[in-house]
Amino acid sequence: MTIRLPDAHGALRTYEPRTEPFPLTPGTPVTSRTVFSAAHVVADPYADVSPDSPAAVDWDATLAFRRHLWSHGLGVAEAMDTAQRGMGLDWAGAAELIRRSAAEARAVGGRIACGVGTDQISGGSLAEIRAAYEEQLAVVEESGAQAILMASRALARAAAGPEDYLDVYGQLLRQAAEPVILHWLGPMFDPALEGYWGSAELDAATDTFLEIIAAHPDKVDGVKVSLLDARREVALRRRLPQGVRCYTGDDFNYPELIAGDERGFSHALLGIFDPLGPLAAQAVRVLDTGDTAGFRALLDPTVELSRHLFQAPTRFYKTGVVLLAWLAGHQSHFTMVGGLQSARSLPHLARAYELADGLGLFPDPKLAEERMKDLLALYGVHR
């Protein structure tokens, strides 16, 4: 069987899908690295909503996908940008997602960390921003999950300089019940975060970030760095206090960063580990044995797919992630919160299918092929 796929120039070409998936099975939790998959949410396709409506989530399918990730030994990073936080999922929806997912994690013994932000407000004073953070921190801690302090659009607007970040984050860390993960999300993921930590100059921003950590090393489990700059991440990693982890959020360079060098390595908290979950877990279990070459042999070929999904404008990577979840049979439809399934072109989606199929990511390649043909037919590409 073949399928006709549109290329970047709009021309149709013939592609022959593979007939068997890459052999992957659920396994024990990974041990040599702490690995979180930032998981997407599954929209309710039958809800009568508009792009401006509160998110309508299919809770059964959303929680089933998290059980899938846990079954392969991965942790789940919840209510992050992969879950359309700030791009269709409001704070009310995120709070319910946190509570439901944390309860599910307890039931199955899965590891979970949840995002803490300020998206219940659009602006305000530093005191109001801190109060918004505190409200969300309380929800996460009450759920029993680990907290991830995410970057705040409101703080990026309100802060006059580095001292305001030092003050707000310092107060939050002092009251956190358990060590948190600090998240540095670059403007390629969210343009509203330009100049975070008080400077658009990254060396100065890094110094402020490290100053916050150095003042509260007992309250910082680790840092998630999403700057898509491997050199900068390694330099930051080497400056972290003893015991503070670096969780790579670099969806362009993750194999080399997780593998590490003679001076250390990064753990992982990645959106690309949503579609790559089983393969990523298998690769890290190989790394657990000390086989770095085997780890790289499994994970390096996935980088082309990841760079495709996360190409500019990077914030729309979620569309490709949800497409692959639908093609893989994890959900019954290709519908997203806020109608975001329209955020990528048909050639982009077709290439995502081709790359994922080439890696053997689809448990049922025939199902993926038929669903991709259904999508193509909606765009007028006849079989």
Rank of each mutant, 00 (worst) to 15 (best):
P275N: 05
I212Q: 03
H216V: 08
V225L: 15
A215T: 14
G222I: 06
D300W: 14
P29E: 03
T206A: 13
T289I: 12
R106N: 09
S199C: 14
I181D: 10
L236C: 07
A350W: 02
G249C: 04
G320A: 04
S342L: 08
G264L: 10
D167E: 14
A8Q: 15
S32C: 04
V49P: 03
P313L: 09
I129T: 07
M336G: 13
T19E: 10
A297D: 15
E262F: 10
D218H: 05
V139R: 08
L97Q: 05
A113V: 12
V57H: 00
F22C: 12
A325G: 08
A145P: 00
C114G: 06
R4W: 06
A145Y: 03
R263V: 08
M1V: 09
L97N: 02
A283W: 00
T2N: 11
V76L: 01
F209G: 02
Q175P: 06
T14I: 02
H68I: 00
A215N: 11
E194T: 11
G124I: 06
G186M: 07
F310G: 02
P23A: 13
D229G: 12
R66M: 12
V223M: 08
P26K: 09
G339N: 05
L149A: 04
T292E: 15
D261S: 10
T289Q: 13
R263C: 06
T118P: 13
E16N: 14
D52C: 04
A235H: 15
A235G: 11
L324W: 01
L276H: 01
E128N: 04
R153V: 15
L367V: 13
L340V: 06
A200I: 08
Y46D: 15
G222L: 03
W59S: 03
I121M: 14
P347S: 13
D250C: 04
Q171I: 03
V116Q: 00
A268C: 06
A94G: 11
L137H: 13
D221E: 15
L210K: 14
H348G: 05
Y379Q: 14
T34P: 02
R85N: 07
T335G: 01
A297K: 15
F209N: 00
R130F: 03
A154F: 10
H68P: 02
I98E: 00
E369F: 02
L227R: 01
G27I: 03
L279W: 11
T14M: 01
R33N: 09
E178N: 12
R296Y: 05
I272M: 02
K318R: 15
M372F: 08
V286R: 12
F252R: 13
K219E: 12
D374H: 13
L340H: 14
M336H: 14
S342T: 14
W91G: 02
G320Y: 01
A158C: 09
A352T: 04
C246V: 07
D357S: 06
T28R: 09
V76S: 00
P17A: 10
G243I: 10
A131H: 08
L228Y: 06
D167S: 13
P347Q: 08
D52Y: 05
D81F: 14
R13M: 04
A92K: 14
P6T: 13
R85Y: 14
D58G: 13
R238I: 03
A159R: 13
A64R: 10
L227N: 02
S122D: 14
L376V: 10
L309I: 10
F65V: 00
F22E: 12
S125T: 15
D119G: 13
E16R: 15
L137W: 12
G186D: 08
